[in-house]
Design a protein around this nucleic acid. Structure first.
Lengths: 153, 153
DNA sequence: GATGAAAAGTAGTGACC
DNA sequence: GGTCACTACTTTTCATC
């Protein structure tokens, strides 16, 4: 499943604006609309493009506090790992979660309406996950950049 | 610019799948297609919805190493702040960047093809930004969740 | 095996109620 | 906010390279 130059161009453009029409897309990558459409369809079939989503401004819907949370788990309780993963998946305030090397075991990006909401959430997190040894929180003062766009050569 | 119940439903659905048709959307929020369209249009005009983008699987395009980087800046060189912000904006490998309280001043999410690429990038970062006092790097071992979706009540 | 042109089908838009 | 007519976009077909 090698990517052509046109494929890469399509990915670049679609990551910027997925509402672009096939005519525009075709023109900008130097293909006919039907060819562009077929390439795009194949990129979706091959799961290179996973999905298209709208990006919502948190401030406009009343959720404006982001937190970076580093969580350290008890390593000797592996049976509590699946519930923790499920908690991450099921908690919509958790936007992102990575398992990392280094200091903390996990780093989470959490988006809530207020610090009070975070407090409640953190309490619930500890309550539901007794394998959390400790966690440290950084308040986001300023979001400078936010994209899931992948740099395509 | 108060959000109606239908608006919130629209945001929820569009954050999951922005390729949904107006007919589907209308049906699921209990409006006519043209009403749904008008609400959607207004959400875009009011910049509640900022844009629509395709989500690309990094593994499928050969970029598969994520790093979390905490950067600490010299506080007494404010004139070097704008260049740093420009570097963040102009470097496509930097997916996300926050200014935070707590230990580090800034936290970055960086996506590269390999650790070797990260090395080159980190060197360049230090070279171009002499106000970086130090930085610490965590390698992402596992990405558990990744979304920019905002939880809409 | 993929492309482009053109036809057929579907979805989005805007005027009107 | 809903209905309808119009326009634009997407998808398929078909011939071609």
């Amino acid at each position: 499943m090698a990517l052509t130059k046109a494929d890469r161009e399509i990915l670049k453009l679609m990551q910027q604006d997925a509402t672009i029409t096939l005519n525009e897309l075709a023109e900008r990558v130097g293909l006919s609309p039907s060819s562009a459409q077929r390439r795009l369809q194949k990129l979706r079939e091959d799961r290179v493009i996973l999905r298209d989503v709208s990006i919502v401004d948190p401030k406009k819907v009343g959720t404006a506090v982001s937190m970076l949370v580093e969580v350290e788990l008890e390593r000797d309780r592996p049976e509590l790992m699946p519930p923790f993963l499920r908690w991450l998946a099921d908690t919509p305030e958790v936007q992102e979660a990575w398992g990392t090397s280094g200091r903390g075991d996990f780093t989470l990006v959490i988006l809530v309406q207020s610090v009070e909401h975070f407090d409640v959430l953190a309490d619930r997190m500890m309550e539901m996950n007794p394998n959390i040894r400790k966690f440290t929180t950084s308040v986001v003062l300023k979001t400078l950049k936010r994209t899931l766009a992948v740099h395509v050569e």
